[in-house]
Design a binder for these strands. Structure first.
Lengths: 212, 212
DNA sequence: GTCTATACGCCGATAGAC
DNA sequence: GTCTATCGGCGTATAGAC
């Protein structure tokens, strides 16, 4: 029965501390102190601080991509549609340090920057494809051009990827609540309001409220 | 004929450097070196680094609020409407370091945090009032409730306040072009697409393209 | 107002014993 | 794998001469 390795504990604690205070104000010393381990121990498991952040990013990426794992062919039900956003926003919350100080992190690590951008590109294409499918199902606007789907995808992405940060900025503290998150989901769907078929939108909203 | 004081030169150079590399990776030493002045000189003019950032924020605030200086009573012309966004996004670009590392800055300075939040609250109210006026002019949707205007205000604000950062994240470098900015303006109005009266929206878009 | 010189602390990272 | 000890570097900020 294997104990939890220090490598895993370092990752867990780093994520907690960085979510709380920002990635950039957490030093390797802080992490060691919180774990009651020595600096040498930490540097045995990770070459440097960037490697810790990068490992956490990979975990985020895996969870995030997994939240989209679905057959994109079929009609998109209101439950599917709401589910994408509910699940991914939960994940974004768990790794909110990534988004809060994103630009600073990307400036310090070229590899992370490249992978983040690839993930963003992938996500935008995925969101656009979902919008196109919803339109094909007859639940979104008139016969739209691909460009419109891209614009919808980008707008929802911008709100999605900045929502937790927006809450942290607006409230003084970093205690973000579940209802703050649900409010963000409604905010995302407000973008689509008037373009979604009314009964489809109502069903989506109902699912959001269940998530609360 | 008074020379430009070192105080002013410190502010100018700080803004340039911080826009380029991020507020947080620019030290007082960097600023001194760029200006060929001594640390003692800098600290004669400013108590600490936060005071520099705070002074720059005040400049931003003045310019930003000035860009909204208008009688809110009258009907809002497409030119007015486009103008608010064109002018303010230009200003946001000039002070983009504020938005790029916002959360880190607010965490380090309570006074700045309080003032930023106040400005955000003011702006959201202003945007909501403008939306209400556009609706009253018959150029926005049906008879909407105030809540809808607030939601529109928040959505446009989220895109507005994160656009420059989004560009910096998406491109590798920090060379943001004028056309990147205009694209952001269109993106903002895509949120309102389908809710604005068609001829009003067309006139607004035309003004955006002139700005390019 | 501006300079030189410097104190002090923290951070990232490594060497080498155990 | 984990520890102790430590190095070099940098960042903020101040003291005191000019």
């Amino acid at each position: 029965m294997p104990k939890i390795s220090n490598r895993v504990r370092i990752l867990q604690t780093s994520r907690d501390l960085m979510n709380q205070s920002g990635a950039q104000s957490i030093s390797t010393n802080h992490i060691c102190e919180a774990l009651k381990i020595s600096p040498g121990n930490l540097y045995y498991h990770f070459k440097n601080k960037e490697e810790i952040v990068y490992a956490l990013f990979l975990s985020f990426k895996t969870e995030f991509v997994g939240a989209f794992a679905d057959e994109p062919e079929k009609p998109v039900s209101p439950e599917d549609f709401a589910g994408y956003y509910i699940r991914t926003l939960d994940i974004a919350f768990d790794y909110r340090f990534l988004f809060s100080g994103l630009l600073a992190l990307l400036r310090r690590d070229d590899q992370l920057a490249a992978e983040y951008r690839a993930l963003q590109t992938w996500t935008l294409a995925r969101l656009s494809a979902i919008a196109a499918q919803v339109a094909e199902d007859g639940n979104l606007g008139g016969p739209g051009t691909p460009t419109q789907y891209d614009s919808i995808a980008l707008n929802t992405w911008l709100i999605w990827s900045n929502w937790v940060r927006h809450i942290e900025i607006s409230k003084g503290s970093s205690d973000v609540s579940r209802s703050d998150m649900v409010q963000g989901l409604h905010q995302i769907f407000d973008v689509l309001s008037g373009q979604l078929a009314p009964q489809f939108e109502a069903a989506v909203r109902a699912h959001l409220n269940q998530a609360e």
